[in-house]
Design a protein around this nucleic acid. Structure first.
Length: 564
RNA sequence: UGACCCAUGGUGUAAUGGUAACACAGAUGGUUUUGGUCCAUCCGUUCUAGGUUCGAGUCCUGGUGGGUCAGCCA
């Protein structure tokens, strides 16, 4: 072979994001032989596309560098968490196509170890029990520009602290009566270092540990240690934890044993999407106030909503790849998400003809009883998907939008006296328009050209328009739900003076109940995806019943022709 | 009047001291039995002022703008 030996740059090495650079450096220098990352959600709500970015980042790193990725629930606050959420999170991660390493982990599995480390800190003078109330602690913390004031309980003896902490665990005190605090620096310029609370008392039932504990560790005293226990090498989180990193390291410094893997916290910018909101609280409000039907409403940016909408895991991965990973605040154009799903569905979706708003067409020169089957391509992007036979007869439906009595040259569709092609079928010409008493068009009388079978004109004459159609008597009635963006503003929660609900798009859902599909779709099952030719990508909703299919429009086709 | 972080087309991400690149969006044209796909072209004085250097988007200093932090949430 005389293949030209193109220099290795032809490998077109894709540039690495800053986290991949860190990982490669750590692997190269031998700091780590293998990387271990983790996805650590708190089970207090449903996952959204921002979490998907994090999942894809963490698991993607594990795959790319032949390492491992753990799934760990950060369940240190029993009053907010529930198994309902752990179940949905498990489902979402698996749906995205990822397998976590080993068993699912829970921070609550480490409560005993965490307790021991807390005792160790007490014994070495780095932690103390504070009797101050929450208000007092808050009032003495100072402000970003003013140092805090040390607690009067700050210098209790090790013995007293040890005893008090033990009694906290035993349940001798009520909620809020005491906390365990790290003894660091009340005048630190970093607020998180001003004697942060390590443990608080909560007499509450935990979804996993039940009533075994009544003291629960705070995030800051849990996360880094959990990473450490699991041998995590790169602990990736979002930007708002940047200021926590010194504390993350401070705790680690005090428990770290030589020779063990020491995790490193790395922060990246969370994902924001235009025309939607991402915060758990706001999404919950949309559900509670019935602006949407639930967490998996197809308009929601939740993973379950996107799944129901018809998104594929591949599309979300394409999206994540295009969005990239950096430290800059961002608002991603929702158009990029739409591009990603079109890109994937274009390659894999079965084509089918469906009429959303039917207009009856009678082919007057086509024999009454005759019917024939015409060959239609299943997917022009994938020859292996073959073709199917589509029934044709004298009475058809076309799209209402595809007819205008009179229209300009830019209108390529059917007009009175004009000719178009019915896809895979014949050329037809419209001769007469039938209207009801109100002047609404109810039917078109057309004639077809028998020589144009298959859509080719033997005499070489051209038509500009090709319409999709359905044979009336063979058609299947289906319902269709069309979705628009949930908010009319690009950044609904970006206005200081206005509540995000003020920007809710009241028109975000359109239900069509009289749609006509070609018989091919008859056996479709919930989750099945199709391209309705010229209209967009649709998937079968779980609300479908045996005799009525319901389709969600995932996304429309790109449309470079604008109806004015 | 603190600490930490960030600043490159409309949007997002690259360029690792050496010709500012890619994608999305938009515009225009071509192909087309989906007004889809595909193809082509167009769309930026790298926030600012100094400095270092043969050479700065990149390094240094100041400024400006934005973000995060005052939960016994994560």
């Amino acid at each position: 072979m005389t293949e030209k030996n193109i220099p290795e740059t032809s490998e077109e090495k894709k540039s690495l994001n800053f986290i991949e650079q860190i990982v490669e450096e750590d692997l190269k220098t031998g700091k780590h032989k293998e990387i271990i990352t983790r996805f650590p959600p708190e089970p207090n709500g449903y996952l959204h596309i921002g979490h998907a970015k994090s999942i894809i980042l963490n698991f993607g790193l594990g795959e790319k560098y032949k390492g491992k990725t753990n799934l760990r629930f950060d369940d240190t606050n029993p009053v907010k968490e529930d198994v309902e959420y752990v179940d949905s999170i498990l489902e979402d991660v698996q749906w995205l196509g990822y397998k976590w390493h080993g068993d699912v982990h829970y921070a609550s599995d480490y409560f005993e170890q965490l307790y021991e480390w807390a005792v160790k800190l007490i014994k070495s003078g780095f932690a103390y029990v504070d009797d101050q109330s929450g208000e007092e602690i808050s009032a003495t913390r100072g402000t970003p520009t003013k140092p805090g004031i040390e607690s009067p309980f700050r210098n209790r003896s090790v013995e007293e602290n040890t005893d008090l902490f033990e009694r906290m665990r035993k349940g001798e005190f009520k909620d809020g009566e005491k906390v365990l605090r790290a003894k660091i620096d009340m005048s630190s310029p970093n607020m998180h270092m001003r004697d942060p609370v390590m443990y608080r008392i909560k007499h509450a039932e935990h979804h996993r540990t039940g009533n075994k504990w009544c003291i629960y560790p705070m995030y800051d005293f849990t996360h880094g240690q959990s990473d450490y226990i699991e041998g995590i090498t790169h602990s990736i989180c979002t930007l708002e934890f940047e200021n926590h990193r010194p504390l993350y390291d401070w705790f680690l410094d005090r428990i770290y044993e030589e020779g063990k893997t020491r995790p490193r916290q790395i922060e990246f910018a969370r994902l924001n999407l235009s025309y939607t909101v991402m915060s758990k609280r706001k999404l919950a409000e949309l559900v509670e106030k019935k602006y949407v039907s639930g967490w998996d409403d197809p308009r929601m940016p939740t993973i379950s909503g996107l799944r129901r909408r018809g998104y594929t895991p591949e599309a979300l991965k394409i999206f994540a790849e295009k969005v990239g990973v950096a430290k800059r605040e961002n608002i991603i154009d929702v158009g990029l998400l739409e591009f990603s799903i079109r890109e994937h569905l274009n390659k894999i979706a079965q084509r089918v003809m469906t009429i959303l708003n039917p207009l009856k067409v009678t082919i007057t020169n086509y024999p009454e009883e005759r019917e024939e089957f015409l060959s239609a391509v299943n997917n022009p992007e994938d020859e292996s998907m073959g073709s199917r036979q589509v029934p044709f007869s004298r009475t058809l439906y076309i799209e209402k939008d595809d007819f205008k009595e009179e229209a300009g040259r830019k209108f390529f569709r059917l007009k009175l006296g004009g000719e178009v092609r019915l896809r895979y079928a014949y050329f037809i010409k419209c001769n007469e328009v039938i209207k009801d008493a109100n002047g609404n068009i109810t039917e078109l009388l057309c004639t077809y050209d028998p020589l144009s079978k298959g859509g080719k004109s033997p005499d070489g004459r051209k038509v500009k328009g090709t319409l999709h159609w359905v044979s009336a008597k063979h058609s299947v009635d289906v319902n269709v739900r069309l979705y628009d963006r949930l908010f009319s503003d690009e950044s609904p929660d970006g206005h200081k003076d206005k509540d995000f609900t003020e920007f809710i798009n009241s028109d975000s859902l359109t239900i069509l109940e009289n749609c006509k599909a070609e018989p091919y779709i008859k056996n479709a099952k919930p989750g099945d995806r199709f391209q309705f030719e010229r209209l967009g990508y649709f998937c079968v909703d779980k609300d479908s019943t045996g005799n009525k299919l319901i389709f969600n429009r995932t996304v429309s086709l790109r449309d470079s022709w604008k109806i004015k």
